[in-house]
């Protein structure tokens, strides 16, 4: 019997939600387990780095890697998996576009560490102890990975063949991707494995989206009674749908929450945040600077709202000092 194709799963700076989404394949996961040999999956199986190191280069058919890259350990592991794999898929928003961990690119490394180890309300650390990346003890030397200054999407660190977008990707998209992989019918390298149209196109509220919007105020979802049938933008609630790739089938919309943009932009857009900024601002119902600013002030956090999942791959990448 010929060897089954080898598959690896790996996680970097992530929340674990992407791992959940693999399990969400439900009974389909059995078919996957049947068809492939899983050679690495830290959340579920006990393979070690040395096991992967011992494998010949290119012997893994595909590595599905989720999470952003923030530490030297993550960098080392993804480089190792790249070497050992024919294909690498960036799995989920964090690997695809940097994701929520990427919002830390609004701060310097030192600001993050200082908050976490000194200033956060739940921290008691009078000695201001910080982790050391190397400590020599009687038993030997212990090391920790280095915490980088910049959060990166996967393709800012290694070559990536495909992207499965979403926070997390839906089981349907994962299933389609695995089927395409196992049958050898993969699209052109670099493809994002979701439709290349805006979410509005597949949104259940599409027909209620006005062609001519006029904003006099932006409302936040928690502060209003949301009409469950009307386009969010028509209600003055920011919806990232026009600047976000389709493929989720509007799961958030169906849950009566606006899209926050997790599928990233379509291929025609370079910078998702700039695109939605443009769409929203241009339809503000005012002509005087002061009036315009007053309306725009109802968006309290433009960077966090427009780049919720894509700051590391934005044109500016990171706040500068």
């Amino acid at each position: 019997m010929p060897d089954k194709p080898k598959v690896a799963f790996y996680w970097c700076a992530s929340c674990g939600g992407c791992e959940e989404s693999v399990v969400d394949l439900a009974e389909n996961i059995l078919a996957v387990v049947d068809a492939v040999d899983i050679v690495m999956w830290p959340v579920a199986m006990d393979f070690k780095k040395k096991d992967v190191e011992a494998m010949p280069d290119g012997s893994i058919l595909v590595s599905l890697i989720n999470g952003a890259v923030r530490t030297s350990e993550q960098e080392e592991m993804v480089k190792l998996l790249r070497k050992k794999s024919k294909l690498v898929i960036a799995y989920g928003s964090c690997a695809h576009t940097g994701g929520v961990p990427g919002l830390a690119n609004q701060f310097e490394r030192e600001e993050v560490l200082k908050f976490v180890y000194e200033d956060s309300p739940s921290t008691v650390n009078p000695q201001k102890t910080r982790p050391e990346i190397k400590v020599i003890t009687e038993e030997g030397t212990v090391t920790l990975p280095k915490f980088f200054n910049v959060v990166r999407a996967l393709d800012q660190v290694i070559d990536v063949d495909y992207y499965l977008p979403g926070c997390p990707p839906t089981p349907k998209l994962l299933k389609q991707a695995l089927e395409a992989l196992l049958s050898g019918k993969m699209p052109e390298k670099g493809t994002v494995l979701a439709p290349d149209i805006a979410l509005c196109d597949e949104c259940p509220r599409k027909d209620t989206k006005p062609s001519d919007l006029k904003y006099t105020e932006f409302k936040r979802p928690h502060a209003v009674q949301i009409d469950p049938n009307l386009c969010f933008l028509a209600q003055g609630i920011i919806c990232m749908g026009p600047a976000t790739r389709a493929g989720c089938e509007g799961v958030c919309i169906s849950g009566n929450m606006p899209c926050t943009g997790c599928f990233g932009p379509t291929s025609r857009v370079k910078d998702q945040g700039a695109k939605i900024l443009s769409a929203l601002a241009s339809q503000v119902e005012a002509k005087e600077e002061k009036e315009i600013d007053k309306i725009l002030a109802t968006i309290p956090d433009p960077v966090g709202t427009f780049y919720r999942y894509a700051l590391p791959v934005s044109l500016l990448r990171k706040r500068i000092k």
Binding site: A281, S282, A286, D293, V303
Partner: peptide
Amino acid sequence: KALRRVQLLKRMLKDMGI
């Protein structure tokens, strides 16, 4: 349209340290 975009972009650039 340009003016409205510029007003919001200015805020965003400031937040990005420019």
